[in-house]
Structures are given as structure tokens and as C-alpha cells.
Amino acid sequence: MRSLFRIGQVMLAECAGAVRSRRALVILVLYLLSAVFCMTGTINILGKMENELSKMLMLPESEKTGVVSVTLWKSPAFQGMVRSGLRNDLVYNDIEGRHPAELIYAWFAFLCAPLLAVLVAGNRVSDDLKSGAVRYALVRVTRMEWTLGKYLGQVAMVALALASSALGAWLVVVCKLYGVGTFELLPAMFGWGLRAWLYALAWLGLALGVSHLTRSGSRATAIGLVALAIFTVWPGLLKLWARSFGCPWLDHFDALVPSSALLSLWRQSVAPLFAGGVHLLVLGLTYLMFGHLVFARRDA
């Protein structure tokens, strides 16, 4: 219990430090703005496309953006394209009835969550190692407690960023598509934010794990970004190698990277979502513990 208490204290200190840290704050605001701009931009493009489509078909222009898109989205032809693109009937069945706006936000959140995690958390440990600030904590908490507290603090920070981005995206949708006063889509937006947060658990573990390996914050962030790039192409590489070398079992190594759990996060039922969340948490803690093991064996 005392250990949990100390982890909690490190987490609170980490949250307070991250909130006051200009870099973390700037990145969080940028993320929120990106979500807002992404939604605004996408809806504007949709609106223009709908207008062009209406002109071409010589139909009266729709007063509100989204009406044509929603109709198109629900059309059997378009759904067929989505189904063949996804190549996963379970995911297709789950997202079939969703509003395009929430899927646009989900796409944005899943795409940017890894980047957010690496940029926010990449330097949080290495900077403390470089400045020596870690020493003031390490006479009060164990190295393991410090590592876990840091991780949980960053998990809380990213939750805050994703919640605010979901809220921002919903506000854009409300203003652009529905008009103020409706709460439609709000729970769905937060739902996708929650899924992106689960996805970020693994990336935060990676970013903080890497941050344990070096005393340079910028180097840690750079290594994190390189790892992100490698992990992004990893499933493709595995497929290529599996085909090239005739080793289909290579495909199973896909599970070592967070993107392998991504399809689970698109599901609406609890069981796959839970399994995907656990998978991502285990991955995150594994990356984190790898960094911690190196840190635990070296001078602070």
C-alpha cells in the first residue's frame, strides 16, 4: 500500500510538472488545435464535394454539410468499398452504422496519438536524469515507483489531451453539421478518445522506456520518433519477409507492435476492446520495463 501511495505521489508530481512545463502544454494545445482543424478542414472539404456533386447531378444544394455524405456512406455501393478496403467483416459490421464525422475523428485520434505520446513523454525521464532532479525523488521513492509514477502521470496527461480534443472535435461537428444545442455524437467522440487513449498506453510506454536510456531529452525524443517510424512499417515488413522467405510464422511477430491491436479498438463490443486494451497495456509496460531495467542498473 505504501508503494502504491508513493507511486501516486510521483504521478501527481509528474502531472503538476507536465502541466507547468511549457513544452507539454504547447504540445497539448497543438494537439487540440490539430483535432479542431482536422475536423473543420475535413467537413469543409466534404461540404465542397457535396456541393459539386449536387451541381453535377443537377440537384438542389443541401443547406447543411453532411447530408449527402451520410447518404453516400450508407449506400450499398460505398459500403461495399469500405468492406473490401477494411478486409475485416467484424470491424466493418461495428462501424457500419456510425456517423462519418466520428469516424473522421477516430482516424485522426488513432493517427496522432502515437505522435502525441512520443512528443509529450519523450523527454520526461531523460531531462530529469540530465538535470539531476531525479535524485531528489530517488531518496524518497524506489526507482520502480518513480518509473511507474512517471508513466501514470503521462497517461493522465494524454487522457486530458484526448478528452479535450474529443470535446473540440465534437464542438466543430456541432457547429458545422448540427447547430448548437445538441449533444448527439458527444458520447461517441469521447468513446473514440478513450480508444485512442488505450492505443497511447503502448506508445507512452515506448516513449518513456526510451527516455530511460539516455540523458538527452532531444535524443530520447528522436529515438522515440525513429521507433515510431519503424513500428509503423513493422507489420508491412513482416508480411514482406514472411512472403519472401516463406516463413508465415513471422507474421506472429506483428503482436510486438501497438498497431497490431488497432483493429480491436475499432470494434464496438466490449470483449475485443478489452482484449485490445490489455494487449496495449502489456506492450506499454513491457517497453517501459525494458527502459527501467537499464535505468535500474546504472548510476543515477
Binding site: 505504501r2 508503494s3 508513493r6 503538476a16 510538472g17 507547468r20 512545463s21 511549457r22 530529469d128 538535470s131 539531476g132 532532479a133 535524485r135 531528489y136 530517488l138 531518496v139 524518497r140 521513492v141 524506489t142 526507482r143 515507483e145
Partner: peptide, 22 residues
């Protein structure tokens, strides 16, 4: 061991900065 000595041991380390934002 911080689990054992936390609260009964403290140090002023040389050249170790405090967190600047705090």
C-alpha cells in the same frame, strides 16, 4: 533502499537542479 529509508534519509546532491517548472 527508498522503501526502507524514505523519510529517514536525505541528501543535498551536488550539481543537481530542482525541476525548474515547480
Amino acid at each position: 533502499d527508498a522503501a526502507v529509508h524514505s523519510g529517514s534519509f536525505a541528501i543535498l546532491p551536488q550539481d543537481s537542479a530542482l525541476p525548474l517548472e515547480a
